[in-house]
């Protein structure tokens, strides 16, 4: 049963990816941008312009371009998506999959840690505030849920940099946080890339100095994201729990004389299952939404890559980025859905 469900979901996801690649292809060609002019400069001669246009394949009809892009009935010498090749960047000339392979793990590492920590904080806080709705804690939690979710994360990131780096140094003569200039001190030897997650890699290569420094560099960006996303997560967990505590089955369980520990477990179980889907939603949101944070801390993640590609009209890179982000979020949704289906019998395969 579960396998049929997984297979069906994977098939749907593949269809969605095809849809997304088509939409993004047409979308960027519908918009009035001139990538050739951006590449050769506005003062270039007509000949140079035409040469560049031909080199990019933009002199072909849109249908032919689509064929080249998809790798189906291609008129180009290179492969397309169907062959598992995302194309070469118009700016750097290197394969896009290689470039994304370098940038993506940075983003994934940032948001995975942030969400993990945010949930570790949000679950107990949200539940406690739901159990004691009259306490001061509940009021603070309520305020936090509303406030943090509506804040400009890049500004807060900047403020944290100012406070923990600049101001702290001026006041106390040492840095509480490193300069926002990357993932690791450039003077240190970077660990070999194994998973792309720098913390994991430094442990795997037994480079503990790099581990400590990388963790120090990740501290502020992760703190900023946790600061922002913990708000809405706490809010939703609290709402779930409040609803469950008022539900018929909790009242009934108590009226049957179940021990309070069992009743709590009943409530937790019912409240946690829907909260799990939140992980997926936030993961998908942060994949594309952590861009400004990556910029502030110069982490070199997918967000910065996308800015670079978009501002230089690097069409293959834009298409690749969107496709990869969509693929990762669909993968996360799928995983969460499968876990959810295991937890909640009401979900039919």
């Amino acid at each position: 049963m579960i396998w049929r469900f997984v297979v069906r979901r994977v098939l749907i996801a593949i269809l969605q990816l095809v849809g997304i690649s088509l939409v993004v292809f047409f979308l960027i060609r519908l918009l009035p941008a001139d990538p050739v002019a951006r590449l050769v400069g506005f003062n270039a001669t007509q000949v140079a312009y035409d040469q560049a246009e031909a080199a990019l394949g933009l002199n072909k009809s849109v249908i032919q371009q689509l064929g080249d892009y998809l790798g189906i009935m291609s008129t180009a010498k290179y492969d397309g998506i169907a062959q598992g090749y995302l194309g070469d960047s118009w700016v750097t000339g290197s394969p896009i999959s290689e470039e994304i392979g370098r940038f993506l793990p940075v983003t994934l590492e940032l948001i995975t840690y942030s969400l993990l920590i945010a949930f570790l904080i949000a679950v107990p806080v949200g539940i406690t505030s739901a159990m004691r709705p009259d306490g001061v804690g509940a009021k603070i939690t309520f305020f936090w849920g509303l406030f943090a979710g509506s804040q400009p994360e890049f500004w807060w990131g900047l403020m944290f940099v100012f406070f923990f780096f600049t101001w702290w140094w001026e006041q106390f003569g040492f840095f509480l946080a490193p300069a926002p200039l990357g993932r690791i001190n450039p003077m240190l030897i970077e660990p070999a890339v194994i998973t792309g997650f720098i913390l994991v890699d430094s442990i795997l290569s037994l480079n503990f100095e790099a581990f400590v420094d990388a963790a120090w560099h990740l501290m502020l960006p992760v703190f900023t994201l946790v600061f922002i996303v913990s708000g809405p997560i706490i809010k939703m967990i609290r709402q779930n729990m409040v609803r469950v505590l008022r539900s018929d089955f909790i009242l009934y369980a108590r009226s049957c004389g179940l021990p309070s520990r069992s009743v709590s477990l009943y409530a937790l179980r019912a409240a946690m299952a829907p909260a799990m889907t939140l992980i997926g939603i936030f993961y998908g949101f942060l994949l594309g939404g952590a861009v400004p944070i990556e910029v502030i801390f110069a982490l070199g993640g997918l967000g910065e890559y996308s800015i670079r590609s978009i501002l230089s009209f690097d069409y293959p890179a834009i298409q690749g980025t969107v496709l990869i982000i969509a693929m990762v979020s669909l993968l996360v949704y799928l995983t969460i859905d499968i876990l959810h289906a295991f937890l909640d019998p009401r979900i039919t395969f």
Binding site: S247, F249, G257, L258, P259, A270, A273
Partner: peptide, 22 residues
Amino acid sequence: RAIRGKDIGMIVQNPRHSLHPM
């Protein structure tokens, strides 16, 4: 707690919502 469900039994309306769904 020891009395509830042992000496005093309870049947409620909305039986399907009174059982834990999971």
